[in-house]
Design a protein around this nucleic acid. Structure first.
Lengths: 128, 128, 128, 128
DNA sequence: GTGGTCTAGACCACC
DNA sequence: GTGGTCTAGACCACG
């Protein structure tokens, strides 16, 4: 896996990195159990402060997306969420509504939006 | 229209407010030409500083979502975007990918996600 | 780059500043990627409130003229516009008509006006 | 002459009106000596407050563009400016620079800009 | 150190 | 009454 961060644009680097790791997992390009580069290693290849990489990793660990095994490295966790179904559903619905709001303001039609979503869905790695 | 902001989360107040206004418009609950509460009025009901409300309004005006007529108030603008199609599409696709990443991590299946999206889509106000 | 603002005129300070930055970029005196003075620094040299400088910077960021990288500073963005061609043309034509109206009222002839425009054009940094 | 004001958009009504009168004169559609509608009359047809029309007229009178002859009405003044040539030139050059700055940021080329300006120039009524 | 957010409170322009 | 500008000063997030 190679990641890349852009120092142009206002999204904090640690959050760009966390987002890219989440997306790589969701697309199936990083499988459960896979080992990620060490903090030191990744901070060198991305030319960013090690604290920045560490922050991304610990955030994802708190989310349950990564596991750190001290002395061994950082690994992709098994899929699944600790949250209850109503909580998970509420989060997803809120995000969907935000997306649809954006689609309407960007002047896309119902059918264009749906087609685009279905097209992108085929690129992700869905459960069962 | 009633809006509500939470001061506990990390999302800035002015951005929560802007998001709620955008969503109300996208759902058709705020029609083009409708007048929004005055800055001072809304700042009182939300118990925030008038500058904070004004910031949300002016951001939305820059986006072309609202029109402000000094001395009269703030109004919902006509729909439509001045942005180029490639730019609009890129923005939407990026948002879709972020959403789908979240859906996978929240452990939803392809069909559940699609069903949820189609259900929510029916609540928005699409063009043409 | 040195900027200067006048507090006596009726043009808001933040807008004077934004205009000077836009002009410096259009003349090529501020190249893409160049760093602008920090908000605090510039607010000291101009003797205005930091918020006023920040307002100019964020307006220009919304226009796509500047990029701000929190923690690092504010930089000149890559050139180009995200707006649709008809919108861009309408804006330019409106501004041209306003200019020509002024030229006529200032009692300049057709040839004097054209000569002056061509002279000034040579001082700007045009694309391609 | 018919004028029209838009209550959408942030330009004050009195200034829209003044601008339209200036432009009509510069295009030769209102000749020197022509009589403008009375304040009362115009305020009715535009459906605006009479004070607003009066403000536009008095601003233009101060500029030397209109003359009020009490009891008779408001008339287009003879062309010409009271200002000295260096002052007039400085004003025009400043306006030209502002226009060219906008053209560059709107991503127009040198030749497109010049062509557009020459096209619009032919629609104005130049001296001698 | 950088920019971002929010508050409190003053004054102005417009209608 | 409306929104717009500006100041002073506090606190937070980022690198």
């Amino acid at each position: 896996m190679e990641f890349e961060v852009s120092t142009t644009g206002r999204e904090p680097i640690y959050r760009q990195l966390a987002g890219q790791i989440r997306e790589a997992i969701a697309r199936g390009r990083l499988a459960p159990g896979a080992r990620l580069p060490s903090v030191r290693e990744l901070s060198k290849t991305l030319v960013v402060n090690p604290n920045t990489v560490a922050r991304a990793y610990t955030d994802l660990e708190h989310e349950g997306v990564l596991n750190t095994r001290p002395g061994l490295g950082v690994f992709v966790a098994a899929p699944g969420s600790d949250l209850t179904r109503p909580v998970r559903k509420k989060r997803l619905v809120d995000s969907i509504d935000t997306l649809l709001t954006e689609a309407v303001h960007l002047d896309f039609s119902h059918s264009e939006t749906l087609a685009l979503i279905q097209d992108r869905m085929s690129q992700f790695h869905w459960k069962s």
